[in-house]
Amino acid sequence: MNQMDVNSDIRTKQKPKSGANDKWVLRLYVAGQTPKALTAFANLTKICEEQLKGKYSIEVIDLMKNPQKGAADQIFALPTLVRKLPVPVRKIIGDLSNTERVLIGLDLLPVS
């Protein structure tokens, strides 16, 4: 938990740097209401609320219901988070429990 706090400090500094007023479009691919999917969604909303409040949208795609959608974003692992906007497209796989990795993946944190 301590680490999380440290992270959030750095995050605040980074925030204006990355993309400013751009709208963030995020897609979360899951397959049914699995524990991993739920964890990932919870983690994602938490991070977004903290980092991108007000300028993000999350679309959850359930491949169980729409299996054909997996091919378009080249999804092979679940859960996968895809940052559609801002470009370039980024993919983060896993339940997003490692917040630091997520932030690096989303380009919200410079790789140190």
Partner: peptide, 10 residues
């Protein structure tokens, strides 16, 4: 980017 648990269900 790998963050935590995942599988290849997709």
């Amino acid at each position: 980017e790998e963050t935590g648990e995942y599988d290849l269900e997709a």
